[in-house]
Every structure is written in C-alpha cells, then in structure tokens.
Design a binder for these strands. Structure first.
Lengths: 156, 156
DNA sequence: GTATAAAACGTATAAATATCCAATTATATA
DNA sequence: TATATAATTGGATATTTATACGTTTTATAC
C-alpha cells in the first residue's frame, strides 16, 4: 500500500493527456502503469481529484480535470512566487502563519489570493509574515492537501 | 409528444439556475414544469444538450452546461443593462435608432459595444436615443437574429 | 514495544445513467 | 392518399459509478 498519492498523480496525468471514457478504461491504463486497484478505489480517487465528466461536443463523454487543475502560464508564475518566498507555515485553530523570506510576504500573499485555494478565506501580508484565515469548516490538513496538489513541489 | 424542443429549453434553464445532482431530481423539477417523461428520455436530453457533471469543489457533483453555453458574469450584467434601458429599435437603411428610457442611452450603448455584435459597426448615444450604424452587408434582420441569441429575453 | 485511532482498500451491492428494442407519431416522397 | 423513412418515447435491461461494511494497513499515543 502507501501508494495512493503516487497513484493520484498518475491518474491525473492520464486524464490530462488521454481521452478516457469510463473507469474500466482508466483501470486498464493504471494497471499498465503498475497500479492494480479495483473500480471502487478508482471511483474514490476520481472524486478526490474532483474529476468531471464532460461532453466531447459530439456524441460522447470523457473525464476532465477541474478547471483549476489546468495550470495557466500566469498561474505557474504565481506558483513560482510562492515557492520562492515561502519558508514555513504553522497553524493555531483557524489561523495560519506563513513565514517568508524578508520582503516576500506580499508577493506570496498575492499569489495565494490569485490561486484562490478553497480553504483560504483571506490573507494579510506584512514584510516576512502572512496571516491566513481558513474558511469555516476547513483545517490545516485540508490546506496542506490543497498545497500538495496546487503547488506540488512543496511536499511538507 | 412533439414537446421535445420545449422540454430541452426548460431542462437547460433548470440546469443553468439550479444545482442538480442527479436525473431523478431533474425529473421531479421537470414534472412540476409540466413535462412528465422517463429517466431514459431525460438521459437522452442531457446527452443532446451536452450537459456535463462536474465537481462542486467540495464533496459532490452537479450538472453543468458546456462552456460555450455559459454566459460570463460580466456579460450578463451588460445584457441586463440593455434589457433595462431599451424601448424600441427602428431602421432606415443602414442606420438604426434605438429609443431608451431617459438617461439610459449611454449604458445601453456601452453594453452594445461590449457585447460586440458583429452586425454593429458603431453606436452614438445621446440621452434617450442611440444611433446604430450597421456594418456593410448587414441588415435589420441580421441584427434582430443576433439580438435573439445574445439577449434572449428581447424576442422581437 | 502495545493499544488505539485513522486511513486505505476490496467485496458486494446499491444507485445512477445509458442503451436496446419495440411501439407510436411525425415527415417526406411517390 | 399511401408508403417509406425518420424521430421520439417508454419499458426493460445493461452499463457505469458510488458506497456500506468489514478487513488490513499505517499512523499516533502511551
């Protein structure tokens, strides 16, 4: 076990670069990638990745990543801003404190705003510190999960 | 029978303005709208409308119209401007004269510019009157057709 | 270490959706 | 008008997807 995270990455990649009509097909592709799981697990994976099923504009349907998983060029540069500036993040209840390199708080804060992570209600940036207010019902783990997928290189 | 077209319109409208999780729910809504059909028919309707099922970003899924059926929010507000202000439109050759409620000519004119209807070359707005110059080769009927699709509530 | 809790997963099954087939109604054509 | 063809639909069923539940694994606390 202990392969869920890797598998999710592969699933995402497969969906991004192939036209996949149903879970059985995806299951086969996953197997050739070395992940043998059941349809039940895959169904859960897709839900976790928020994968949708949309029309091809003709006569069929295929899986598609949610809009915000398709990284635009501008988004990439914001992700770079975050990576470049961020040093640590700690939580206290519904608040988080991000430490950044001196002078980077602003650019990281703006980037976080633009990235619009669903867990973040708002940010307030000083010089090397950002206050993050989590949305009602969200917690540290939710945000970390979101970080992992949206800003992949920062893996705890 | 002979109600498919109307039904499709209603289905589309329902999907646009409600969060609908599955076909049974939609079936109920359709019934209250006066269309009693089976799930099989509805399934076909959805395919025909190219409706997709996408994540709400949290834990569920709902039906959504394809992108090109969705009017952007900003566009909506311009459409509202037109609806709110416009009173009549008449033509003389390549010119049109739109009458608006007093003071509304400007907002309607700006909205028409933003909507960028292909038939319109330019507009000139006073207080309650707008001059519209049609593009070479375009006529009254072309513009009316465009109005119908882009500003649906104004049906001649 | 052990105990306990949480996460991940498979099996079986339920729920949701799509389609095959036959019947009916509309539309085109001779 | 009669006939052929296409469109629309429902019932039954197949296919696809989601989930309840139990088990095993992994993480956490002691």
């Amino acid at each position: 076990m202990r392969q869920r995270h890797n598998r999710l990455t592969v699933v995402k990649e497969l969906i991004k670069s192939n036209r996949i009509d149903n879970q059985d097909a995806l299951l086969d592709m996953l197997k050739t990638e070395g992940f043998t799981v059941t349809q039940a697990t895959l169904s859960r994976d897709l839900k976790m990745l928020k994968v949708g099923k949309i029309s091809d504009g003709w006569s069929g349907y295929y899986y598609a990543l949610p809009d915000n998983d398709l990284i635009s060029e501008s988004e990439k540069s914001y992700i770079q801003d975050v990576r470049r500036g961020i040093l640590s993040i700690e939580f206290s209840g519904n608040f988080g404190v991000i430490k950044t390199r001196p002078g980077h708080a602003n650019s990281v804060g703006i980037a976080l705003d633009v990235l619009a992570l669903p867990e973040i209600l708002g940010t307030l940036a000083g010089d090397d510190t950002i206050f993050v207010i989590l949305r009602e019902g969200m917690n540290k783990e939710d945000l970390q999960e979101s970080f992992k997928t949206r800003i992949p290189e920062i893996e705890e």
